[in-house]
Design a protein around this nucleic acid. Structure first.
Lengths: 135, 135
DNA sequence: TATCATGTTGTAATGATTACAAGTTAGGGA
DNA sequence: TCCCTAACTTGTAATCATTACAACATGATA
């Protein structure tokens, strides 16, 4: 848990029990959860937790680059622990989101050509996953 | 307009004035509009138009690969006329969505390696656009 | 041109997210 | 160590995009 304290402090974020729990949750659940899933799961052990706090915290963590906000589903945000850059695959049959361990080879090229500053790169693939294809 | 009629027929979609208008709108407005923007604009010339029709039509067109549904913003869907495959850049300062004229070089590789069937490829870049960077 | 499956419309419901106000707490300075 | 204040948390209420639904209208086939 000390690790999470350091991460928050390093980013100038006040250390609170709620933030530590959410940060730990994301680190130990690499399942691209929704805000509501995080809320429901943590509510079990921290009944006083408020959904607003989950949303606020996720936004703060996102602004500091500590979590990655995925818009792949289109109906709800998904949150991802920031580790190595990777892409995502969404199965339109079963809804699962699968990590694709590649990085965009074009990001820097796009930046220098267009003159934009790129902060985030999202690679989304959508279709039917291998498991669903078998059925 | 005959062109749009053919497109609908070729895809087994019933030809209606509403669908023709929406298809034409998307073809002539390459601005990644929201459903609401399409609705408001078309409402001016077609007062009887219903927002539900816009949503229904966009969904049908999407299922037939005639429009591309972008989830880049995270708060609302954006719709794109399907032309050549390209990526998108979202400026977090001014909110504009800019076409990035590159294609994903990895899609086929991901498909064969993971065993998934890929129907859509979305490349999203987020940051600050060249125009906003100047200010 | 009669039929009916399919499309359209308007309204009401849903569900994720945000706004807000009141109470609570983390953490730096006395 | 204690106090103070800005920042955080909480709960409820509002917002806004999207979907559900039921009644009506229409395109296209025979």
């Amino acid at each position: 848990m000390d690790n999470y304290v350091q991460i928050l402090k390093k980013n100038g974020l006040k250390v609170t029990p709620q933030r530590l729990e959410i940060l730990k949750y994301l680190d130990t659940h690499r399942t691209h959860p929704t805000a509501d899933t995080i809320y429901s799961d943590l509510k079990k052990t921290t009944p006083s937790l408020s959904k607003t706090t989950v949303y606020n915290t996720l936004q703060h963590l996102g602004e500091h680059g500590l979590v990655y906000t995925l818009t792949i589903s289109g109906s709800e945000l998904r949150f991802d622990s920031v580790i190595n850059p990777h892409h995502h695959f969404l199965c339109k049959t079963c809804g699962s989101i699968i990590d694709i361990d590649i990085e965009c080879p074009n990001a820097r090229k796009v930046e220098s050509a267009g003159g934009h500053r790129i902060d985030e790169v999202h690679g989304y693939f959508k279709g039917v996953c291998a498991s669903c294809l078998k059925e």
